[in-house]
Design a protein around this nucleic acid. Structure first.
Lengths: 172, 172
DNA sequence: TATTGAATACTCAATATTGACTATTCAATA
DNA sequence: TATTGAATAGTCAATATTGAGTATTCAATA
């Protein structure tokens, strides 16, 4: 439902063919979503079938014809509906990559410290990239800003965790 | 990869049949994952085929035979490997439910405020539930504590966003 | 003791997602 | 002007996920 909103919101500003849509999202929202190319095409097909977007075939040279997608009136209505629904509802995100924390005590503290230290480096690098990103067009900035805040909170928490493990090691 | 780690980590402590595994995760880690029942069965089948766990058929009454899953030596090795990999790597989580922020400016500020206020209520309720949860066995607590921290950070950010929109409204 | 509703336990078809492709175009350079 | 490598554009089979079931057991109560 949310990816549909994203695609509708992007197409709404400008008709685009599939690769272009994916490119746009990958350029400006890489830190915020992981929408893969085949998923984008799948969703575009689905939305075309649902009548939310039209697909205008454009032939160029010998390549397979591109389809340029544009919102229909139904698509615009759906966009408005999805956007409001999305803003009103909070749907929790899940962090599969943190599952390991559930079994942290199974790893000797010294090794856990080293592993989490490596994790910290990855996280800090991610944050640096997000912060260094060029300014984003329109209100995309809100989403990216949220991302930065989240990464910062993650880093803070990881630092506290590392501190606690260090204390435990020192005490033992 | 991470759900496999979760299932291995749970089965490692005690052999269980499918429903039991799902129950356990749903009880103690509901705030942290959304592993659905059919997915759990799918992954258990896969891990059994891979030789990470054994499936002992147990017939009881007229119900379809339960399969009690237990780690094999290969499963234990895989668990150790996955756990270390998981702790070392940071894989970003994506927040599909925040996509709407990318199009926040398309909604009149007064309405956006009302919508985000409703979102805030949902989020605060979620946080209250997570904080009120009974203490978790073993190191599961780390994961749940992380969850609480994350929800708190989300709430802080949402409050800041609401403040900015209110200012904008007042200034206009 | 019959009936009902909840809890237990699992399955299946429909849907979504992904890794690993193919094929074309374009620009640089050998 | 061939050749090569990168960027563009899209597809497909394999895999994963889910909503909506089925079927059994159990406990309460009518």
């Amino acid at each position: 439902m949310d990816r549909e909103l994203l695609l509708l919101g992007v197409l709404r500003q400008q008709g685009m063919h599939g690769y272009q849509v994916h490119e746009f999202i990958d350029r400006y929202l890489a830190s915020c979503t992981d929408l893969k190319k085949p998923t984008a095409y799948f969703l575009l097909d689905k939305m075309a079938k649902a009548g939310w977007i039209t697909a205008e075939q454009v032939q160029e040279g010998h390549r397979p014809p591109r389809r340029v997608f544009r919102l229909t009136a139904a698509g615009e209505a759906e966009y408005q509906r999805l956007l409001r629904e999305n803003l009103s509802a909070y749907v929790p995100a899940y962090f599969t990559s943190n599952i390991g924390l559930a079994f942290l005590d199974e790893v000797p503290a010294a090794e856990a410290l080293a592993r989490l230290d490596e994790r910290r480096r990855h996280l800090a690098a991610e944050l640096a990239v997000a912060q260094a990103a060029p300014p984003h067009p329109g209100s995309l900035q809100w989403l990216v800003e949220h991302r930065v805040r989240h990464l910062q909170a993650e880093l803070d928490w990881l630092d506290e965790l590392l501190g606690r493990i260090r204390q435990r090691l020192a005490g033992a």
